[in-house]
Design a binder for these strands. Structure first.
Lengths: 132, 132
DNA sequence: AATAAAATTAGTATAATACTAATTGTTAGA
DNA sequence: TCTAACAATTAGTATTATACTAATTTTATT
């Protein structure tokens, strides 16, 4: 799998972190990324070229590969977010920090570290560990 | 401080990780980064623009700020490298992985995590924790 | 001084990022 | 159904980081 950029990571996470059952809109993505829609569309195109999403009748569909990559990012995120909160960093700050590198962590590495720190499922604040 | 890129990070680390007392040569930097000299020179120029290094009579001098940034990278590197090796990842692999994100870690975050995991000075292999 | 090695300049290219302006498409209300 | 509003897309431009080759200049070493 080709490496993602920070923007591509944020975009993929934005697409898959929607609560609603409706597929996310481009304008909503643009909003979440704080860019204009042509810029968002550009990121979308790159994610498509990397086969992480597909355009299915005007709708953004995340591919199997895309879901896999997303899960790996989430696992790495959870892992390091937990580490940071356990080190005394606030959940918000931890999330903000970890976003900058979770997508760079090798999945195998994340999984080993996650075991090492005891597979945390919840942040120590009792809040479910959220990615975005 | 402006954010560094991966290349700029590698370059700064290369410059300051030389054993010899002689200032590093451009060709040596190019070699370490596996790029041609014009490319290396380009990175050097960007580091200069960010006031991390200076050209002092044809010699590359690292500024106070550059040394500070370097130390922060090293601390973050040591911190996460230790975490990874403690999780059962080989030192070589840990180093390789951590290089990809150590320069993105907030120094304050690194310092807190470092305390949390017990301020490791040595890798569990008994080798001094090396950055490059 | 002559040659070899190193550094630099000039020129080109690509990928990622981001914008505006203009156009096309869609949709919901009158 | 028509149209106004909103959404998506295209076209065009710009910047930054990255990287190359070829040519030139500078610096060392015999």
């Amino acid at each position: 799998m080709e490496k993602l950029t920070q923007r591509e990571r944020d975009c993929l996470v934005a697409i898959l972190s929607v609560n609603s059952e409706f597929p996310i809109r481009l304008s909503e993505i643009a909003n979440k990324l704080s860019v204009r829609s042509p810029t968002a569309l550009n990121v979308i195109k790159r994610l498509s070229e990397k086969n992480l999403i597909k355009d299915k009748g005007g709708m953004i569909i995340v591919t199997k590969e895309g879901k896999k990559v997303y899960k790996e990012i989430i696992e790495a995120h959870r892992c390091f977010e937990a580490l940071l909160t356990e080190s005394g960093i606030s959940l918000d700050e931890a999330c903000k920090q970890v976003r900058k590198f979770d997508y760079l962590i090798d999945p195998n590495t994340a999984s080993k570290v996650l075991s090492h720190i005891g597979n945390p499922k919840l942040s120590k604040h009792g809040r479910k560990v959220i990615v975005n």
